[in-house]
Design a protein around this nucleic acid. Structure first.
Lengths: 137, 137
DNA sequence: TCAAATCCTTTCAATAATCAAGTGAAACAG
DNA sequence: CTGTTTCACTTGATTATTGAAAGGATTTGA
């Protein structure tokens, strides 16, 4: 299904998705057109889902990064999930997980104050444990 | 520092980073050249860190997604960190966190078998608790 | 052996990016 | 009030890329 050239293409586009097809072709030893058709095929197959940018969240004013372990009190999760929908600027991921907690919630905050405010509201819906991300390795 | 046009540009590039500067300009009511210089400035400022793709990990054969809570037994974390370096295909993020655990390790595996193997090796370095990601909301 | 399919290259017209020059508005000193 | 500087943007010419069409090489199967 995927040969090594496809994997190389995915690798190169992961590093820089704004590369020209001509350059991409040179990197994987194809013409620009051949590279282009391969990329189109990867899109059609749903392997490449989209093109995006990495934004420096610190510089965007979201310096506080937290993972919040969610323990739902009740069997009905809907109030919690509805609450999250209203916090789209803050919520980056909400994973339903097996293990001790019910969800792992990844969030970004401008400050500890806004984190505090969020947690205050959050506690109306669920119990939680907080992990603040200090660094990335 | 950033006006609403810059935010719009970041928003559009987040949705589709391969858009032409001409199209991007149309979306934010600028010429392609003006959009292009703004994007260059955002890159220089380090706000746009890079251009990348979203890859369907399921289709790439990494269907098992896990968050592993790491509890280091010893004060020297280096053996653990060195171990991770050898597992670049599997490890997606390793966050040093405050809270109960020392690190939150995000990984992708092709199968439960490979997860099992990884955990077996991991237990030589640290204690852990496993959360398997079931879904994303 | 032939036909179809796949994957690639070449060529060329259409389109986009880039560079240089120029416009107009705002800020500011004389 | 005037002249100068700066900034962000536009315009126009040049260069580069993209996309479509045609064709070549290789593989597959009847």
């Amino acid at each position: 299904m995927l040969d090594s050239t496809d994997l190389q293409i995915i690798d190169e586009l992961t590093k820089n998705s704004r590369i020209t097809m001509k350059e991409l072709g040179e990197k994987v030893h194809l013409t620009g057109q051949a590279a282009s058709t391969r990329v189109a095929k990867l899109e059609d197959q749903g392997i490449i889902e989209g093109y995006t940018i990495n934004v420096n969240q610190m510089k965007m004013g979201y310096g506080v990064h937290a993972i919040i372990h969610i323990f739902t009190k009740t069997t009905n999760h809907q109030p919690y999930l509805s609450f999250l929908k209203k916090q789209k600027d803050i919520v980056r991921n909400n994973f339903k997980v097996s293990g001790e907690s019910c969800y792992l919630l990844e969030c970004r905050f401008p400050s500890n104050e806004s984190l505090d405010e969020f947690l205050t509201n959050l506690s109306n819906y669920v119990s939680y444990k907080l992990s603040i991300i200090i660094n990335k390795y």
